[in-house]
Design a protein around this nucleic acid. Structure first.
Length: 371
DNA sequence: TCTGGGGTCCTTATCCTC
DNA sequence: TCTGGAGGATAAGGACCC
């Protein structure tokens, strides 16, 4: 008997919450992103379906979105509010199973294998419960594994339940572009297209393992070989530990002034240390990231002899790292990252929450702890 | 009109130790 | 003592995800 996995994906989540809070926005194009000013640097986090009709989508620069639809309502991202709704939705999900893996504020996997119910009926139930109790709509994918459940929830939106069965996998995936697969982005899709003439999942299935490994490396090649066939044994992971904690900021106007950058780093260090403490970690590695005006992005890192948790040491390390960058061009972004995280008095965390490793189980691979 | 922020993991190169 | 390789740690960049 196979597993029963659901993928619950809230529809246009940020924008939907805004429309819920402000009924006057319903039916209007709403764009959530940045600080809500479409004339400043920033990108679209979420566009309402009304805004999408104008060609606006996530990750689009706010200025571009404004050009496409000047009369759209532009709003700042309000993570506190979305977190609130996210917790309410999650609480509903937990009424159905303790095996809930949140993927982000607006997505989660559920393992309902242990329930006798028909999974599609269960998905309909969950969708209705979310709508009745929050006013928000969700799309749910039903499948024998996480990979297919995620693809399924994306096939029909919004407010829909879509099932992919093992016996229909090949047929349902065959003509879809390779980018529907998790881990295939624009670069990989282009390489597959140029080197192998592969555009669809079905075409990808016809490529031998060795050819994929030659093109993309052993690991990624093997990964694609399995996922294009809908194969994925990864468990629903209910707990994980962070691997890194970071903060970064983009200037409204590029700068080459060292004093400005040092002040930014100081502020970022303060924020990142706050997060580190909140999570209860200390860190060994400090990384400074600089993105220049031409978008070239560089990092410089230093691993300290012992984990640290105080702002002064991290700041001192970060400022020293800054000296290793060529300040020959204006800087648009500065970031600070802490990694090699350790809980004081414990071994480094081995928790896992990623998109590559757990999707396909293979021999000898370390697997995350399941709930 | 460019191109956010917070993450994860992979690959490759290099250095060091055994 | 010299040399070579294995393998871990570190560093940097890149791809991807939401």
């Amino acid at each position: 008997m196979g597993r029963k996995i659901l993928h619950v994906d809230m529809d246009a989540f940020f924008a939907a919450v805004e429309q819920l809070r402000r009924p006057d926005l319903r039916g209007k194009p709403v764009v959530v992103g940045g600080d809500g000013n479409p004339h400043k640097r920033g990108v679209v986090s979420t566009a309402s379906y009304e805004a999408r009709a104008f060609g606006i989508h996530s990750a689009m620069p706010l200025r571009t979105a404004y050009a496409k639809c000047p009369h759209a309502v532009f709003l700042a991202v309000d993570f506190a509010a979305y977190g609130d709704y996210s917790r309410r939705v999650r609480a509903i999900l937990h009424e159905y199973t303790p095996l809930v893996e949140p993927l982000s504020l607006d997505e989660a996997f559920l393992d309902v294998s242990h329930r006798p119910d028909d999974p599609v009926a269960l998905a309909q139930d969950i969708r209705a419960a979310i709508n009745a109790r929050t006013g928000l709509t969700a799309s749910v994918g039903v499948a024998p594994n996480k990979l297919l459940a995620k693809i399924a929830s994306n096939l029909r939106k919004p407010d829909a339940v879509t099932e992919i069965r093992l016996e229909t996998v090949a047929e349902m995936l065959r003509d879809l572009p390779t980018t529907v697969l998790w881990g295939v982005g624009p670069k990989t899709a282009a390489r597959l297209g140029e080197a192998l003439g592969v555009r669809t999942v079905g075409e990808l299935c016809s490529i031998p393992l060795a050819a994929l490994q030659t093109l993309l490396g052993d690991h990624h090649g093997e990964y694609l070989y399995h996922i294009c066939r809908g194969e994925d044994d990864s468990p629903v992971v209910t707990e994980w530990e962070p691997k890194s904690i970071s903060r970064e900021t983009t200037y409204q106007w590029d700068t080459r002034r060292r004093d400005v950058i040092v002040r930014t780093i100081s502020s970022l260090v303060g924020d990142v240390i706050d997060d580190l403490r909140e999570e209860g970690y200390v860190a060994r590695t400090v990384t400074v990231k600089i993105r220049y005006r031409d978008f070239a992005t560089h990092t410089r890192a230093q691993t300290l002899p012992a984990p640290v948790g105080d702002a002064a040491t991290v700041l001192q390390t970060a400022v020293a790292l800054l000296e290793r960058f060529a300040m020959d061009r204006p800087v648009r972004l500065v970031g600070v990252r802490l990694s090699n995280l350790v809980k004081p008095g414990r071994e480094p965390g081995t928790g896992n929450r990623n998109f590559f490793t757990p999707l396909v189980r293979s021999e000898g691979r370390r697997l995350p702890v399941t709930g």
